[in-house]
Amino acid sequence: MKTSPTHVSTHCEDLMRALRRFGPSTDLVNRWGAELAARLGGGGRLLAAGNGGSAAQAQHLTAELVGRYRDDRAAYSAIALHADTSATTAIANDYGVQEVFARQTCAHGRPGDVLMLLSTSGASANLIAAADEARRIGMDVWSLSGPAPNPLAAASDEVLCVDAPAATVQEMHLVAVHMLCEAFDAAVAP
């Protein structure tokens, strides 16, 4: 199927609209970056998860924290739960797909840690189960999701909802991930 110039133009218009509406969210993302720097700098960890493209975004975030975003700095504890394929497939086989992130959250999460969940729909049962488990443990749950209201937003302590088509939601989540890394690095800079 060929993409018409109209489809490309519509996609760009959706993205520009979403970027304009994103402005008020910058305060939340900056606060998350500073808070995450304090928690990880104090020995805490970030657990992150998503499904499909959102899994890639979550893994991008953890890679930036363990490695580096721009400038060289210390490594921080950040784990992409979906990246452990052996655990993920074993849990899915033994407990069901809805438990793949909740079980890992139970294993790796501690009170005061942060669980970051990414979902374009905000309706993934396995992310909602992980949010419930994290809150039971005493972790904070931050989410990037699509349009509100949605079940993931309701299960989270804080959420940044993007009101846009699914592809644009994922693009805005990448913007938020990069802004979070900028704020994190600024907070840990000597």
Rank of each mutant, 00 (worst) to 15 (best):
residue 3 T to V: 13
residue 3 T to N: 10
residue 4 S to F: 04
residue 8 V to K: 08
residue 11 H to Q: 13
residue 11 H to S: 11
residue 11 H to M: 13
residue 13 E to N: 13
residue 13 E to M: 10
residue 15 L to P: 05
residue 16 M to S: 12
residue 19 L to I: 13
residue 21 R to C: 11
residue 27 D to A: 14
residue 27 D to W: 00
residue 29 V to L: 09
residue 29 V to P: 01
residue 35 E to C: 06
residue 40 L to H: 04
residue 44 G to I: 12
residue 47 L to N: 02
residue 52 G to P: 12
residue 60 H to A: 12
residue 61 L to D: 08
residue 64 E to R: 11
residue 68 R to C: 01
residue 73 R to S: 05
residue 77 S to M: 12
residue 77 S to G: 14
residue 78 A to N: 08
residue 79 I to N: 01
residue 80 A to W: 02
residue 80 A to N: 09
residue 80 A to E: 06
residue 80 A to K: 06
residue 81 L to C: 07
residue 82 H to D: 14
residue 87 A to P: 00
residue 92 A to Q: 02
residue 92 A to C: 08
residue 94 D to T: 06
residue 98 Q to H: 15
residue 103 R to Q: 14
residue 103 R to V: 11
residue 105 T to E: 07
residue 108 H to P: 04
residue 112 G to K: 03
residue 113 D to N: 02
residue 114 V to M: 04
residue 114 V to E: 00
residue 120 T to K: 05
residue 121 S to V: 07
residue 122 G to V: 01
residue 123 A to W: 09
residue 123 A to S: 15
residue 127 L to V: 06
residue 133 E to M: 15
residue 137 I to S: 01
residue 144 L to H: 00
residue 147 P to E: 10
residue 148 A to H: 05
residue 151 P to V: 07
residue 153 A to T: 13
residue 160 L to H: 12
residue 165 P to E: 02
residue 168 T to D: 08
residue 173 H to F: 06
residue 174 L to I: 14
residue 182 E to G: 00
residue 183 A to M: 03
residue 185 D to M: 09
residue 186 A to Q: 15
residue 189 A to L: 13
residue 189 A to I: 04
